[in-house]
Amino acid sequence: MAKKVVIIGASGHGKVVADIVIQSGDQVVGFLDDNPNLGKDFIGFPVLGKIDQFHNYEEYWFVVAIGNALIREKIVTQLYGIRWYTAIHPAATVSDIGVFIGEGTVIMANAVINAGSFIGKHCIINTGAVVEHDNRIEDFVHVSVGVKLAGTVHIGKRTWIGIGASVSNNLSICFDCMIGAGAVIVNNIEEPGTYVGVPAKRKNVNEDTIFS
């Protein structure tokens, strides 16, 4: 039976998540969003109200379509007693051997999740990203478009890996890191912060210029 899904976040990311829901044979009920400038509908689906009205739709499934990990985590902790929808695009490749994907996670088209990998709750594995064998990705991580994670990589909670970045095998990146677009990680990262370049080094920079 098709699942009926409420999407939190009426934005560009929300559009992609809606498409995954539809492509998976499920139904988009509508969106919840706190943006006061939204109209009554978004991409042809109703805007059901603000996020704190979630309790009016508890019979449905929910997914958070917001890229920012801190905001995503805050919303998840506020929404209690609901069912989380895990959105996996039919065009994603997910191994049948020892893969775990946590609730509320979104895996987009052409992403690859190879054998033995663990993906935590409410993560984003974006379009065309490669998660090689035996990776461990903690909750609320965002792996951006075209990222390549080699084998046995560990990504800490709430870390964002920017577009096209690469992480060499057998490395760990700690929690609350921002990895810049195109960065190449060749050493363990043990301190939260922003890392850019080839090879990546810690920088004090305006994150908006790196990850937007």
Rank of each mutant, 00 (worst) to 15 (best):
A2S: 15
V6Y: 03
G12K: 07
G12P: 05
V17F: 01
V17S: 02
V21D: 10
V21E: 05
I22R: 12
I22M: 01
Q23M: 14
Q23F: 13
G25C: 10
Q27R: 13
V28N: 10
V28I: 11
V29G: 04
G30N: 09
F31L: 08
L32F: 05
N35R: 11
N35T: 09
N37M: 09
L38A: 02
K40N: 15
F42M: 03
I43T: 13
P46Q: 00
I51L: 02
I51A: 12
Q53K: 12
H55T: 15
H55P: 10
E58K: 15
Y60Q: 05
F62H: 10
V63M: 09
V64N: 03
A65Q: 04
A65E: 03
I66W: 01
N68I: 00
A69C: 13
L70Q: 15
I71K: 04
I71Y: 07
R72K: 07
R72T: 06
E73Y: 01
E73D: 10
I75A: 09
T77S: 15
Q78H: 13
Y80P: 14
Y80N: 15
I82R: 02
W84P: 02
W84R: 02
T86F: 11
A87E: 03
A91E: 11
S95F: 01
D96R: 15
G98L: 01
F100L: 04
F100H: 14
I101P: 08
E103C: 03
T105Y: 02
V106W: 06
I107P: 12
N110I: 04
V112E: 04
N114G: 07
N114Q: 10
N114L: 10
A115I: 12
G116S: 07
S117A: 07
N126D: 13
G128V: 06
V131Y: 04
V131S: 00
V131I: 14
N135L: 05
N135V: 03
E138A: 13
V143H: 08
S144L: 07
V145R: 09
G146E: 04
K148R: 15
L149E: 01
G151L: 07
V153G: 02
H154A: 14
I155R: 10
I155C: 06
K157W: 05
T159K: 04
W160A: 13
I161L: 12
G162C: 07
A165G: 02
S166P: 06
V167C: 01
V167P: 10
N170A: 08
L171Q: 07
L171S: 03
S172F: 02
I173N: 00
I173E: 05
D176F: 10
A181V: 11
G182W: 07
G182I: 00
I185Y: 11
I185S: 09
N187A: 14
N188P: 00
N188E: 05
E190P: 05
E191A: 05
E191M: 11
T194L: 09
V196S: 03
A200V: 01
K201M: 11
R202P: 00
K203Y: 05
N204T: 14
N206H: 12
N206V: 13
E207W: 11
E207R: 13
I210A: 08
I210S: 12
F211P: 07
